[in-house]
Design a protein around this nucleic acid. Sequence first.
DNA 1: TCAAGGATCCGCT
DNA 2: GCGGATCCTTGAA
Length: 223
Amino acid sequence: MSREILARPTLQAARSLLGARLVRDDETGRRVGRVVEVEAYGGPEDRASHARFGRTTRNAVMFGPPGVAYVYLVYGMYHCLNVVTEPAGRAAAILVRAVAPVEGLDLMRRDREARAAATRRRAGDPLWAATAGRRIASLPAERLASGPGLVTAAFGIDRSWTGVDLCDPASALRLESAPPGERRAAIRVTPRIGVAYAGDPWSTLAWRLHLADDLAVSGSSRR
DNA sequence: TCAAGGATCCGCT
DNA sequence: GCGGATCCTTGAA
């Protein structure tokens, strides 16, 4: 995916990101997912954005060039993958909330299980890992990466991936445009999830975008 | 150094 | 529909 696309205003870039491919291709194997759900986060004025405190150690890459990965931990448990947007100096990013698995489903299941087991081990529940394994093994493909924390779990991504250039075809983790001629579903927009604390208008702006009626959209049974 | 709270998911009801 | 798990990041002192 070209950097120019991601250098545009974040909401426009977010539209272009829908349908694109998220690819992890390295010694662990090849995984591909079609991006079906994203959220736009603006600059320091956006009270829901990590950039609202200005530049910090954690969010520094948001202030850099577009097309770079920003991965952070939420709720002490889940990693979230973001794509930096807009020209350097303008802090903005797009949260990848869900992808529909295209290739490497076995790898995604394996990493989902590994992460679930690790999480629960810390909680002191050794028997749970086996249960989680069975549950994930029977999960339909469209549920393997149907949420921000699930995308990173399925792709084996954590904070160490912050800074990776997603526009570089040689990167282990990258974005690729949708295959030419691929038909894309209508785009629906809704308010962002989990940002009530930001207050008006930031909590109500329709900056969550997803492909209509796609089964891989997060919580599609609920919203 | 501290206290507060969060861009979530899962299992149980 | 609800609450627990879990720990990093932040601003204040």
